[in-house]
Design a protein around this nucleic acid. Structure first.
Lengths: 342, 342
DNA sequence: TGCATCATCCAAAGCGGTTTGAATTGATTC
DNA sequence: GAATCAATTCAAACCGCTTTGGATGATGCA
């Protein structure tokens, strides 16, 4: 069932039918009702491909998932971000198209998406310091929203980000208030912007109390259980081990916990741990009582916001450059306690 | 730069340029080279929207992600499955479009995808017993591949699945061989097909040794850390606790481990644990030495296979109904050992 | 030489919608 | 009674490609 057939059945021109269904004012209300009824009855649904060609809009948003060719890791927060964003897209009749691309080909992918007209805009994931993709997207004129920020990028660009610096600063202050002085940072990869901001927050908090950060207590790496475990073991094996850890994620925190327990120590009593909790649906930080004390910010919510921003940007490109900073909550769980007396 | 402009520049008709670029035989080889060179020079990329309308094919594959309205969980294996499938799509110039849909609206979504012509086929995720989506897709004639199977569905349908029954049977046998008699099953939700098959494998192995399964040692629930932890605690608190656990995933296994450790027991010595390992990139089961003894099957690989099947199905619909059963490896790690003497 | 064949290219008709510009009608105004 | 106007409707162009059905010469063969 297509427009022409429907028009024939109704004894109207395709023009009028199209207008009736799209809510244009220049069509008699009685006619419109007749058309709408007929459309429902024959369950007519306009062909998306035709609409897209006719309107010149893709009615689709791209998410480019870079897969690092070295360490083939897909970011686990991805599923939840997508879930958040997807709801927004569905509501607005946009498609979400995912491109899984070896990170070396990312630039090509954006260019192709643009010139082939597959999408009206994109969400940029995992921004790095001075991320080259941002000027690239500006250059090719494809609307975009960054999930995160990119330190070093001069020209303004749309983003939604968690206040990572502030979150880790607060977490560090909280540990300091509990009497901890040797606080370890098990950070994400520090070419990622968020990781650098977190380190800054951590360092700021230490500096504010006149504590000199010990490079031996700072690592950065993949946010996996394994990496967290390894970092934890290494640091706890030192002659002057930390009494507390800041871990980059739920998952690396679990690795740290495993290291603590392997050493015969008890988390929350001997060693404190604070994680950053993205509030992933399949990786909840406890139900009523949180397992970990955590800085929490829902990545799903971030997805929702980013998607709304992008659709806005696509539909009125003249507006301001939207930017949104989300504050993380500090959730007190069972993994922290006063620093043990030496 | 579009086809017409390029044709004008070359002094050729759009027809010839189109054919030259699409490798049709009826164009002079010299002409083809000239066209290809010009296309590259002006970096012409045909408009996808136009191709789609003209050819009547969407050049896109849909993945419908049902978001359960009750427990808002996004399946964590999703990211890796997508990564596997996405590679295949990119290579074949197909788009992957994700629809995040409240599970109640799933049927409507398939119907709409079909009649609006957004996709040429879909991957069905998370099949249940007697899954109504399978007859639905058959009815509306949208090519599809199921990731998993659906017990009770009579007519043949295309699928790729892990041999879950066999995997859990082997895991159970392995524990039995180690002398364990009280083996607990921390299963996924048992309206999911894979969970039922796993239970069957577990029960088969027990029955083959003449062991009567204890209902108190079987739970099914969300595959989260929390749920695994809760199940572990409950069972260990019994007067006749299990000496071994089978856990449905890496994540629920970590919950079980936490329960074991909270009880002051040591995993691999006091209590054995075997998990099913989907080989998720962000959740590796150890590097050289696996943390958990596990039945392992890469969900990413499954994604790759499913995608290839689907594209095949789309491009020659006359063929056989493809079905592919993947066997899981049994990986011996540190989480299992001989059953302790009572 | 005449005719069939082949290689090469093109005009034009789709694909299924949207949108422009104009036509029709009845009511209103002068 | 003619002119004006608003309310409706429609024919046709268009979006940018693919594909059908020729057209045009050159070549092969009897």
């Amino acid at each position: 069932m297509n427009l022409k057939e429907l028009a024939l059945i109704l004894g109207l021109s395709p023009t009028t039918v199209s207008r009736a269904l799209n809510g244009y004012p220049e069509v008699n209300e009685a006619t419109r009702e007749r058309v709408v009824a007929a459309a429902k009855r024959h369950n007519y649904r306009p062909n998306t491909r035709a609409i897209r060609l006719a309107t010149g809009r893709a009615m689709a948003v791209g998410h480019v998932i870079p897969v690092a060719t070295r360490h083939e890791i897909v970011n686990p927060i991805f599923a939840d971000f997508i879930a958040g964003a997807g709801e927004t897209y569905s509501r607005n009749d946009y498609d979400m198209v995912l491109s899984v691309v070896p990170d070396a080909d990312e630039a090509t992918t954006y260019r192709a998406l643009r010139s082939k007209g597959n999408v009206d805009g994109v969400i940029l994931h995992g921004p790095r310091l001075n991320d080259p993709r941002i000027p690239l997207l500006h250059e090719i004129g494809l609307p975009f929203v960054v999930h995160g920020r990119s330190t070093g990028t001069e020209t303004p660009y749309p983003w939604v980000d968690v206040n990572n610096r502030r979150a880790f600063q607060r977490a560090t202050e909280f540990l300091l208030d509990l009497g901890h002085r040797r606080i370890a940072l098990v950070n994400g990869l520090e070419f990622m912007d968020f990781a650098v901001r977190r380190r800054t927050g951590y360092l700021d908090a230490l500096a504010a109390r006149g504590i000199i950060a010990d490079p031996a207590l700072m690592t950065s790496g993949e946010m996996t259980e394994i990496a967290g475990h390894r970092a934890g073991l290494q640091m706890l094996a030192r002659p002057d081990p930390p009494t507390a850890f800041l871990a980059a994620s739920m998952i690396s925190g679990m690795g740290v916990r495993r290291a603590i327990e392997e050493k015969g120590l008890v988390m929350g009593r001997d060693i404190s741990v604070i994680i950053h909790d993205d509030d992933l649906s399949y990786m909840k930080n406890g139900e009523d009582v949180p397992i970990f004390t955590a800085t929490r910010s829902s990545v799903r919510e971030a997805g929702r916001i980013a998607a709304e921003m992008l659709l806005d940007l696509i539909n009125r490109p003249d507006g301001q450059v939207p930017q949104r900073l989300l504050e993380a909550d500090l959730i007190i769980g069972q993994s922290t306690g006063p620093a043990p007396r030496q």
